[in-house]
Design a protein around this nucleic acid. Structure first.
Lengths: 167, 167
DNA sequence: CCATACCTTCACGTTAACGTCAAAGAATCC
DNA sequence: GGATTCTTTGACGTTAACGTGAAGGTATGG
């Protein structure tokens, strides 16, 4: 849909990084090659191509997806199976859209969509909950910061008094 | 500091759950007894008392602390060692406060405090980052929800047209 | 006082998510 | 075209955070 591999203009060599080998892709999204292979192993991120030599080739979208996976992991502590659900929900829209090739009955499409909607709403609810809790937590810590600094000021003025008296 | 174990009034039996056995405490904060023992093992949550028979006794604050630990785990995916840092920072204020028993030099107190402040600020920054990312993510998913529902509407009207024509 | 439920300390098992090597096949540079 | 670098597929190791008994002490209601 985005860019073809064919290099539409004849210039060549300008096709950008539409298809990178695993090492480059890994560095691009901040994980190891082992991780990318593992994600493939469990069906979480399939490289969109293979070289004839049998090497994995990752497109830009793959790299984006990898980065997204990593973010969900680190940001919210999602497990890979949770992430799988999120991403599958994401994929559904694309699949339904590209079901222009309407070999899929509209009824079936609706089914898929309502599934995706439910999953998405569940996720949204979870995100809202998370937001609320993190905000509460943040407030707490901000207050604690205030108290800490107040205590520091108190101590410092105390020490200053001590010094003045000792003089 | 809060409630003494002595039951100040003579009524008795009203001392509340200031000191519970491990099973009750575990249920109270939604973890297993094994988990509480593990958290003690790694020094994350020490039961505030022991019965003469050698059983762990958890006070209300312990239970709160346990609940906090669980929240940090599930909410933000913190590891127990990250949580340890957070809680230690939390403890410092209490310790410095109860350093009324000023066997601790004010200079040392200041040192502790600035350590705590730094750790706390780090945490705050992390929380802010998390908040920003989660919000961004939420926006994305909300938009996705809109698109999904739009596509449903589209499909439904399409099907309705189909039915009218077939009639 | 005794049955039952709860607790103790080992100690080994488990799961997720990779890390780490080995042996051998591609790709690339000069 | 040979050396160097990258990649492949196994296969075993590792770490965190517990789960799951076993063997035996403790608390408690009838």
């Amino acid at each position: 849909m985005t860019a073809r591999t064919e290099s539409p203009d004849g210039v060549g060599s300008e096709c950008a990084a539409v298809s990178q080998r695993i090492g480059v892709a890994a560095r691009a999204c901040g994980v190891t090659t082992r991780t990318l292979r593992y994600w493939q192993e469990i069906g979480l991120l399939l490289p969109s191509g293979m070289s004839e030599g049998g090497e994995r080739l990752y497109g830009d979208e793959d790299v984006k997806r990898a980065a997204r996976i990593k973010e969900l992991q680190e940001l919210l502590g999602f497990s890979l199976s949770e992430i799988r659900v999120v991403l599958e929900t994401e994929d559904i829209l694309d699949r339904v859209r590209s079901a222009y090739r309407a070999d899929m009955r509209p009824a079936r499409q609706l089914e898929l969509l309502s599934e995706a909607i439910e999953a998405n709403d569940t996720l949204l609810a979870r995100l809202d909950d998370t937001l609320a809790r993190v905000r509460a937590f943040r407030r707490e810590r901000a207050q604690k910061a205030d108290r800490l600094r107040a205590r520091v000021a108190e101590l410092e003025s105390e020490m200053a008094r001590g010094r003045r008296r000792a003089k």
